[in-house]
Write a protein that binds this DNA or RNA. Structure first.
Length: 184
DNA sequence: TACTGGATTCACT
DNA sequence: GTGAATCCAGTAA
């Protein structure tokens, strides 16, 4: 697979605009490679860490093209890519289709079911070995996002999670229809 | 210093 | 469909 890293400037725009564009892109960390199939944009809305100026959310405000990894529910890590040069924004990677490094992912996730390896934000982090040590790291090197053909519009739909998990109807949730690795 | 709640997941019924 | 697991950041005092 010929991979070309997305330049930092690619992430300078608004999170809401970049979330759908990230679909189909390739994320690689060490031996693990996957295709992003579900993303979620966070800016300064009430549900976002970016709504308040705190030490934790500093990467959302002060960086773009970096990883923002946070710990939640006492046991899970979630990975975002920071966006919006000069502003506040990040795109949460909610689900990934495993492509390479499946053996390692299966070992980390303690399951042989491929569909369950990375079909959730915390599952993705566990499968790829992402923890707080990756927080605020710049994209690139061993942990980067690579360019890939954009998904066709008919492959992108509105997530069934709307109104179920979060209780809000944010217009920027997406996932890929007709894909066996899709979450929800 | 102590308390509260969370961008989740999974086992169990 | 329901509830437990689990710990850190944020907030109040």
């Amino acid at each position: 697979m010929k991979l070309k890293p997305l330049p930092k400037s690619w992430f300078a725009g608004d999170a809401v605009a970049l979330a759908p564009k990230l679909l189909g892109k390739i994320v690689k960390r060490g031996a693990c490679v996957g295709r992003i199939v579900e993303t979620e944009a966070y800016t300064t809305d009430a549900a976002s860490h970016g709504a308040k100026v705190t030490a934790r959310s500093a990467p959302m405000r002060e960086t773009y093209g970096h990883w923002y990894v946070y710990f939640t529910y006492g046991m899970h890590w979630c990975a975002n890519v920071t966006t919006n040069e000069g502003g506040t924004g990040a795109v949460l990677i909610r689900a990934v289709e495993p492509l390479e490094g499946l053996a390692l992912m299966k070992r980390r996730r303690k399951t042989d079911v491929v569909q369950n390896l990375a079909n959730g934000p915390a599952k993705f982090c566990q499968a790829f070995g992402i923890t707080g040590k990756d927080n605020a790291a710049a994209l690139g090197g061993d942990f980067a996002i690579y360019d890939a053909p954009e998904l066709a519009p008919e492959e992108i739909g509105t997530s069934s999670r709307i109104g179920i998990t979060v209780g809000t109807e944010l217009p920027w949730r997406f996932f890929v229809k007709g894909n066996e690795f899709v979450s929800g």
